[in-house]
């Protein structure tokens, strides 16, 4: 579904991602883990067209999306839940959701789509007329995921959705991702919580210094030695 092929990204001559290649198959959850500064967010930003790669290609269902504007990438069917949630605090929860429809190729919002998302995140329905800024961090994260899902993307990208959330709220977010998987939505999850990500994802790639180091499967999640080695390699 989503293929990253030999991706090279540099900031002012300094390489942030080097020759990175991986695939996310239809309906899969793929994790991208690694320490701060490994190039995880850079990879997502390159996919979304926020940064122009120096080399390599990014393909959605076989078609290259490199060189497209961020709004056109979103309209081609890739939705990003950005780092720090980036909900619009001064808009209502409902208006935030309506913004998610901006990426819809049909441009239509239907009750059915909203209802499907409300089923996943009842809190969003309950607080739909409130200002989004009045929501707690965990609720805002659910809104951010809901807002990405109403666009009915082919691929959902998440940039550290558990960042800054309390452990119980992290549970809520990971539960939500498991339910997103049940809907058959393809997910690329960037996370720092390595163990939970490896346990959830079909496959997890460990990256460090902008390079792919290791591929882990759910069975590795409880293999402490392997997890530690992945980070120290």
């Amino acid at each position: 579904m989503l293929s990253v092929l030999g991706l090279d990204v540099a900031y002012g001559g300094i390489a942030a991602v080097r020759d990175l290649s991986f695939d996310v198959g239809r309906g899969e959850i793929v994790g991208l883990i690694g320490p701060n500064g490994a190039g995880k967010s850079t990879t997502l930003n390159a996919i979304m067209g926020l940064i122009t790669p120096r080399g390599g290609d990014i393909r959605l269902a076989g078609t290259s999306v490199v060189g497209r504007k961020p709004e056109d990438v979103a309209r081609s069917g890739i939705a990003l839940v950005p780092e720090g949630r980036r909900i619009f605090a001064d808009l209502t929860v409902e208006e935030n959701l309506r913004l998610g429809y901006a990426a819809r190729r049909d441009g239509e919002s239907t009750e059915a789509d909203s209802e499907a998302v409300f089923e996943l995140f009842p809190i969003v329905k309950e607080f739909r007329s409130r200002h989004a800024g009045a929501l707690s961090g965990g609720q805002q994260q659910q809104l951010a995921i809901a807002r990405a899902l109403v666009a009915r993307p082919d691929v959902l990208l998440l940039d550290e959705p558990s960042l800054g959330l309390s452990p119980t709220v992290v549970d809520v977010v990971f539960d939500a991702l498991a339910r997103v998987r049940e809907r058959g939505i393809t997910v690329l999850l960037v996370e720092q919580r390595a163990q939970r990500t490896v346990a959830l994802a079909d496959r997890s790639y460990v990256i460090a210094n902008g390079e792919l180091r290791l591929t882990l499967t759910p069975g590795d999640a409880n293999d402490t030695a392997k997890m530690v080695a992945a980070y120290l390699s």
Binding site: M48, L50, K69, P70, E71, A74, R75, A79, L80, P82, R86, F88, D90, L91, L99, G100, A102, A103, R104, R147, A148, A151
Partner: peptide
Amino acid sequence: RAAAMDFRTARLLGVRA
């Protein structure tokens, strides 16, 4: 309104700059 608040995020959601 969304673009005035946070243009980058608005574009990521598909709002045409």
